[in-house]
Design a protein around this nucleic acid. Structure first.
Lengths: 196, 196
DNA sequence: AACGCTATGTCAGTCGCTGCCATCAAGCTA
DNA sequence: TAGCTTGATGGCAGCGACTGACATAGCGTT
């Protein structure tokens, strides 16, 4: 991380990373599949955390409540980390497409694992995959909004808020929609937030 | 595509692709940012199709119905392509992590564009992002199930089915759950704690 | 001491990708 | 017509990520 801050991600060579760790480049590639993977060692733990939460939910729990528990578990873990690291890492990943790609495939594999856990509970397709995808969508949106939040509400708060909002949008189907009474004057728009 | 089938993706060098097209490697990289991009030229058209469907929806249309229209538009376009190509491409992408990564970032950028289009209609955050993420989730699940479908129901059918199922899961919260004897305990309601 | 296992180093090589400069064809202008 | 610009392409050199093959060092077991 220090090296990345110093010379940027692309400006840092694998050999530099390795020698900083007292290793050679070749040995680096025996520990990490590629250069990007150094930044994604935590994804396995997160996955285990969430699937365990689903597997451990009391029988009879609805799929929706099971993934809600998984989201709670992820929030507890992430809120506990050093916020400066979380922010630095997010800025780095957001600034480099190759890192964003890796992040997305990790999240996709997370969704796949969540769907697996749901199926192991007896949830059928396509409900399992859809619930899992929805959960990851909530995670992504909640995560971004957490870090952008001026009033420092917690990650778990944002996850809950996002999940509730998603329920509303897919329920009535009109959440967040502009009031349709006076169609001639457009409603004042909120400033668009970059979402990557 | 012929080259990829012949020697596999990794076994095909950019120089081979270029010379097959009557160009040099250097010129290839002036048309495509990298080797993977040859397989993703269609993503821009798909994005335009979907955002146009959202923008063109009659005023007063709910966010949910707007993305449903976008999904319909994507189905119409994809069902029209040569199915053999769609299948070959999907198999190729599924077999190579680097291609899957690229696919995922394209879908993420698609979600971002959809959210933008919704915001332009006056939909506020986080409803816009969540609806967009949900739509892409439906797209992903519907796409896979379409290609795996034994009875050859159309892509649009599967998209509809997936969207409906998602609504159900997030509504009652018990869709797809195992038909065990109903637990006597009422579903624990997630209490939105105001602050923390 | 001999053996085997594992982690690490060394080296050479391939390939994706980029910067720099030359070339060439097609216009446009004086 | 000669000269100039512009855009597309080729040629070339080079960097850095990544891999395969092999050597070596360390360490525990017997």
């Amino acid at each position: 991380m220090e090296l990345f801050k110093l010379r940027g991600y692309t400006g840092t060579t694998v050999e530099e990373i390795a020698s900083r760790a007292g290793l050679t480049e070749r040995t680096f590639f025996r520990y990490f599949a590629d250069k990007r993977e150094v930044l994604f060692s935590g994804s396995a733990t997160l996955q285990k955390l969430m699937t365990d939460a689903i597997t451990g939910a009391p029988p009879g729990t609805s799929p929706l409540d099971a993934v809600a528990a998984a989201l709670d578990a992820s929030a507890a873990a992430l809120e506990q980390r050093d916020e400066r690291y979380v922010r630095a890492r997010r800025a780095l990943v957001g600034a480099h497409a190759e890192l964003l790609e890796r992040e997305l495939i990790k999240l996709a594999s997370l969704a796949s694992a969540v769907a697996d856990a749901l199926r192991r509970r007896g949830v059928t397709e396509p409900a399992a995959s859809l619930t899992a995808e929805a959960a990851i969508g909530v995670f992504k949106v909640g995560f971004e909004r957490w870090l952008d939040d001026k009033k420092a509400r917690g990650f778990s708060w944002h996850l809950r808020a996002a999940l509730d909002e998603l329920k509303t949008v897919l329920g009535s189907g009109n959440a967040g929609a502009p009031a349709t009474s006076r169609a001639t004057t457009p409603r004042p728009r909120r400033s668009p937030r970059a979402h990557e």
